[in-house]
Protein backbone atom coordinates (compact mmCIF):
# COMPACT_ATOMS: atom_id res chain seq x y z
CA UNK A 1 0.00 0.00 0.00
CA UNK A 2 2.93 2.29 -0.62
CA UNK A 3 1.75 4.13 -3.67
CA UNK A 4 -0.32 6.89 -2.09
CA UNK A 5 0.69 8.50 1.17
CA UNK A 6 -1.69 10.67 3.10
CA UNK A 7 0.29 13.87 2.58
CA UNK A 8 -0.15 13.50 -1.12
CA UNK A 9 -3.89 13.03 -0.74
CA UNK A 10 -5.80 16.17 -1.48
CA UNK A 11 -3.04 18.29 -2.95
CA UNK A 12 -4.04 17.54 -6.52
CA UNK A 13 -7.80 17.71 -5.99
CA UNK A 14 -9.62 19.74 -8.61
CA UNK A 15 -13.12 21.03 -9.18
CA UNK A 16 -14.97 21.96 -12.33
CA UNK A 17 -18.31 23.73 -12.75
CA UNK A 18 -20.84 24.54 -15.46
CA UNK A 19 -22.66 27.03 -13.23
CA UNK A 20 -25.28 24.47 -12.24
CA UNK A 21 -23.21 21.69 -10.69
CA UNK A 22 -19.60 21.35 -9.57
CA UNK A 23 -17.71 18.12 -10.21
CA UNK A 24 -14.98 17.23 -7.72
CA UNK A 25 -11.97 15.19 -8.81
CA UNK A 26 -9.79 13.38 -6.27
CA UNK A 27 -7.00 11.72 -8.29
CA UNK A 28 -5.71 9.74 -5.34
CA UNK A 29 -9.05 7.87 -5.16
CA UNK A 30 -9.04 6.92 -8.84
CA UNK A 31 -8.66 3.22 -9.63
CA UNK A 32 -8.56 3.76 -13.40
CA UNK A 33 -11.70 1.87 -14.14
CA UNK A 34 -11.85 4.07 -17.28
CA UNK A 35 -15.63 4.30 -16.92
CA UNK A 36 -15.84 8.10 -17.12
CA UNK A 37 -14.04 8.57 -20.39
CA UNK A 38 -15.43 5.46 -22.03
CA UNK A 39 -18.92 6.73 -21.22
CA UNK A 40 -18.42 10.42 -21.93
CA UNK A 41 -15.19 11.41 -23.67
CA UNK A 42 -16.73 14.79 -24.54
CA UNK A 43 -16.52 15.70 -20.84
CA UNK A 44 -13.86 13.39 -19.37
CA UNK A 45 -10.80 13.35 -21.61
CA UNK A 46 -7.53 12.39 -19.90
CA UNK A 47 -5.52 13.63 -22.89
CA UNK A 48 -6.78 17.20 -22.55
CA UNK A 49 -6.05 19.93 -20.01
CA UNK A 50 -8.16 20.59 -18.14
CA UNK A 51 -9.24 16.98 -18.51
CA UNK A 52 -12.85 17.75 -17.51
CA UNK A 53 -14.86 19.90 -19.93
CA UNK A 54 -18.12 20.81 -18.23
CA UNK A 55 -19.55 22.20 -21.48
CA UNK A 56 -19.18 18.86 -23.27
CA UNK A 57 -22.56 17.43 -22.25
CA UNK A 58 -25.75 18.19 -20.35
CA UNK A 59 -25.80 18.38 -16.57
CA UNK A 60 -27.95 15.23 -16.46
CA UNK A 61 -25.46 13.30 -18.56
CA UNK A 62 -22.51 14.46 -16.44
CA UNK A 63 -24.33 13.41 -13.26
CA UNK A 64 -25.09 10.02 -14.76
CA UNK A 65 -21.42 9.34 -15.49
CA UNK A 66 -20.12 10.79 -12.20
CA UNK A 67 -22.42 8.33 -10.47
CA UNK A 68 -20.89 5.45 -12.42
CA UNK A 69 -17.45 6.16 -10.92
CA UNK A 70 -16.70 3.08 -8.79
CA UNK A 71 -14.85 5.13 -6.17
CA UNK A 72 -15.24 8.61 -4.78
CA UNK A 73 -12.71 10.00 -7.25
CA UNK A 74 -15.58 11.76 -9.01
CA UNK A 75 -18.40 13.36 -7.02
CA UNK A 76 -20.59 16.37 -7.61
CA UNK A 77 -22.71 18.99 -5.87
CA UNK A 78 -25.44 21.26 -7.11
CA UNK A 79 -24.05 24.78 -6.89
CA UNK A 80 -27.08 25.94 -4.92
CA UNK A 81 -26.12 23.35 -2.27
CA UNK A 82 -22.35 23.82 -2.26
CA UNK A 83 -22.17 23.80 1.53
CA UNK A 84 -23.58 20.27 1.68
CA UNK A 85 -21.73 17.00 1.31
CA UNK A 86 -20.94 15.96 -2.26
CA UNK A 87 -23.78 14.08 -3.87
CA UNK A 88 -23.64 10.53 -4.97
CA UNK A 89 -26.96 9.28 -6.11
CA UNK A 90 -27.69 5.67 -5.39
CA UNK A 91 -27.09 3.69 -8.53
CA UNK A 92 -30.14 1.94 -9.89
CA UNK A 93 -30.00 -1.83 -9.52
CA UNK A 94 -27.87 -2.99 -12.39
CA UNK A 95 -27.63 -6.41 -13.90
CA UNK A 96 -24.74 -8.46 -12.55
CA UNK A 97 -21.99 -8.13 -15.09
CA UNK A 98 -18.31 -9.02 -15.38
CA UNK A 99 -16.47 -7.16 -18.10
CA UNK A 100 -12.88 -7.48 -19.29
CA UNK A 101 -11.19 -4.24 -20.30
CA UNK A 102 -8.60 -4.84 -23.05
CA UNK A 103 -5.09 -4.45 -21.60
CA UNK A 104 -6.74 -3.43 -18.35
CA UNK A 105 -8.71 -4.64 -15.36
CA UNK A 106 -11.77 -6.77 -14.76
CA UNK A 107 -14.72 -4.45 -14.12
CA UNK A 108 -17.56 -5.91 -12.10
CA UNK A 109 -20.96 -4.28 -11.66
CA UNK A 110 -24.06 -5.29 -9.81
CA UNK A 111 -25.02 -6.57 -6.42
CA UNK A 112 -21.89 -8.44 -5.42
CA UNK A 113 -19.64 -9.10 -2.46
CA UNK A 114 -15.84 -9.22 -2.66
CA UNK A 115 -13.86 -11.50 -0.35
CA UNK A 116 -10.12 -11.38 0.20
CA UNK A 117 -7.79 -14.41 0.37
CA UNK A 118 -8.40 -14.68 4.12
CA UNK A 119 -12.16 -14.64 3.66
CA UNK A 120 -12.80 -11.11 4.92
CA UNK A 121 -15.32 -9.10 2.97
CA UNK A 122 -14.28 -5.82 1.39
CA UNK A 123 -16.40 -2.70 1.62
CA UNK A 124 -19.62 -3.01 -0.38
CA UNK A 125 -19.48 -1.36 -3.76
CA UNK A 126 -21.71 -1.21 -6.81
CA UNK A 127 -18.76 -1.48 -9.14
CA UNK A 128 -15.16 -2.52 -8.79
CA UNK A 129 -12.01 -2.92 -10.89
CA UNK A 130 -9.92 -6.02 -10.16
CA UNK A 131 -6.26 -6.08 -11.28
CA UNK A 132 -5.41 -8.44 -14.16
CA UNK A 133 -1.78 -7.44 -14.81
CA UNK A 134 -0.39 -8.85 -11.56
CA UNK A 135 1.43 -5.64 -10.62
CA UNK A 136 -1.06 -3.38 -8.82
CA UNK A 137 0.13 -1.97 -5.51
CA UNK A 138 -3.48 -1.78 -4.31
CA UNK A 139 -4.27 -5.49 -4.71
CA UNK A 140 -6.70 -6.89 -5.49
CA UNK A 141 -7.88 -3.62 -7.02
CA UNK A 142 -6.61 -1.92 -10.16
CA UNK A 143 -4.43 1.15 -9.56
CA UNK A 144 -3.50 1.88 -13.15
CA UNK A 145 -0.10 0.11 -13.00
CA UNK A 146 -1.05 -1.97 -16.07
CA UNK A 147 -0.35 1.07 -18.24
CA UNK A 148 3.10 1.65 -16.70
CA UNK A 149 4.20 -1.93 -17.27
CA UNK A 150 2.66 -2.18 -20.74
CA UNK A 151 0.34 -5.06 -19.85
CA UNK A 152 -1.45 -6.61 -22.77
CA UNK A 153 -4.29 -9.04 -22.48
CA UNK A 154 -7.63 -9.65 -24.12
Amino acid sequence: MASYDSDYSGSNDRQYTNGEITVFWKPNKCIHATTCYKELIEVFNPRKRPWVNMNGASTEEIIRVVNLCPTEALTFKYNKNLSEQPVRQILPETENEVRVMRDGPLVIKGNFKVYGPDGTEYKRMKMVSICRCGASLQMPFCDGTHRKIGFTGK
Partner: peptide
Protein backbone atom coordinates in the same frame (compact mmCIF):
# COMPACT_ATOMS: atom_id res chain seq x y z
CA UNK B 1 -16.38 -15.34 -9.51
CA UNK B 2 -19.51 -17.28 -8.76
CA UNK B 3 -23.20 -16.62 -8.92
CA UNK B 4 -25.42 -15.47 -11.71
CA UNK B 5 -23.81 -12.94 -14.00
CA UNK B 6 -23.27 -12.02 -17.60
CA UNK B 7 -19.78 -11.78 -19.05
CA UNK B 8 -18.53 -9.30 -21.62
CA UNK B 9 -15.14 -9.97 -23.20
CA UNK B 10 -12.74 -7.24 -24.29
CA UNK B 11 -14.21 -7.29 -27.81
Amino acid sequence: IKGKFSFKDSA
